[in-house]
């Protein structure tokens, strides 16, 4: 009986006939209409998934609907620009990977820096160096040796220039001094599946994108792009890349939401409280992170800012050193890591 009532309630909410269960606590900010989170990437992608888990948590805390809008295009800069230009009332947020927000400016896409935003971080994603299970490379050592033996001959699949996977591979290549054949795909999942199909030999995308194929032994994880081992349910412990290349400094790759500076003070206070009370204790988000090989570590305010800075400068300078940047990071005040 309870199931029936619940499903009727959901359908009524869908039809706009009933308001969402309002359990809002006494936060200083009491929103009175739906809040929009702009996901500047396609529905179903890494950002979209995290935000769709996060949105119901915020809904429960704030007592209004939280609507996720997908505005993909131009590497996420269009949706982000729309959030930046929206009325500064706290009802429009942007989502994504925080290091992208900091590096749009050096790519000449959008003139914004992390100082323009109030940042709330939820989970951080780890990249994995994976190979097709039929390739002969059993360890990361063997893969490095193969790269040296055949410079530029081994194909590496990524989600395109300046994607998480590409930055990882560039980082490894610059540290060890190797050459590879970069095969860009239209997203993380296509890159992973092409490696499974044998079109490319190596893939360096996020653990969340490789998880199922690793579990099914269609891909083999050689190293995690991290400085501590990554434990992935069903796969086991993946050694950190610093075991082989200790000089690498690994920045985090945090996903979260942000609103432009200038939103009312009570919105900021409320979101700080929600992040402290609700998001940090979110079982749904914790379970999602564990399942997808991500780290659950919500942060806000100064902590989030401090966490984001190194990842932004790392990405900005890797892009600049790869001649991809239009503007030098130094010109816009991003120090070399």
């Amino acid at each position: 009986m309870r199931r029936i009532l619940k499903s009727i309630l959901i359908s009524l909410i869908v039809l706009g006939l009933a308001a969402g269960a309002s359990v809002a606590q006494d936060y200083p900010w009491q929103p009175d209409r739906p809040i929009t989170i702009i996901v500047p990437w396609a529905a179903g992608g890494s950002t979209d998934q995290v935000i769709r888990v996060l949105a119901p948590e915020l809904e429960g805390a704030l007592g209004v609907s939280v609507v996720v809008v997908n505005q993909p295009g131009a590497s996420g800069s269009i949706g982000t620009a729309n959030a930046l230009n929206a009325p500064k009332d706290g009802y429009t947020w942007a989502a994504g990977a925080i290091r992208d927000v900091g590096t749009y400016v050096v790519l000449g896409m959008l003139d914004t820096s992390i100082d323009d935003w109030h940042v709330y971080l939820a989970v951080s994603n780890v990249s994995i160096v994976g190979v097709n299970a039929n390739t002969p490379y059993q360890t990361f050592d063997e893969l490095l040796a193969a790269f040296e033996a055949d410079p530029g001959g081994i194909t590496v699949a990524t989600a395109g220039l300046s994607s998480a996977g590409h930055v990882v591979m560039e980082d490894i290549a610059q540290a060890v001094g190797l050459a590879y054949s970069h095969v860009p795909y239209d997203g993380g999942n296509p890159a992973v599946i092409a490696t499974v199909a044998g079109e490319a030999a190596v893939v360096t995308q996020l653990a969340s994108e490789q998880a199922e194929m690793l579990r099914a032994n269609r891909l083999r994880a050689l190293a995690a792009y991290a400085d501590i081992p990554l434990v992935l349910d069903g796969v086991g412990e993946i050694p950190p890349i610093t075991d082989w290349i200790p000089e690498l400094t690994i920045p985090s790759n945090f996903f979260g939401i942000w609103a432009p500076q200038g939103i009312p003070e009570e919105v900021v206070e409320t979101m700080n409280m929600v992040w402290e009370d609700v998001v940090k204790n979110s079982e749904a988000l914790r379970a999602y992170a564990a399942d997808r090989g991500a780290l659950f570590n919500p942060m806000y305010g100064d902590a989030a800012y401090e966490e984001a800075l190194p990842s932004i400068s790392h990405q900005a300078w890797t892009l600049y050193d790869g001649d991809k940047a239009v503007i030098s990071p130094a010109e816009v005040g991003i120090p070399r890591p």
Partner: peptide
Amino acid sequence: PYVFENVFLVR
């Protein structure tokens, strides 16, 4: 406006 804003939640 009623249907699109309340049912489809679009702006």
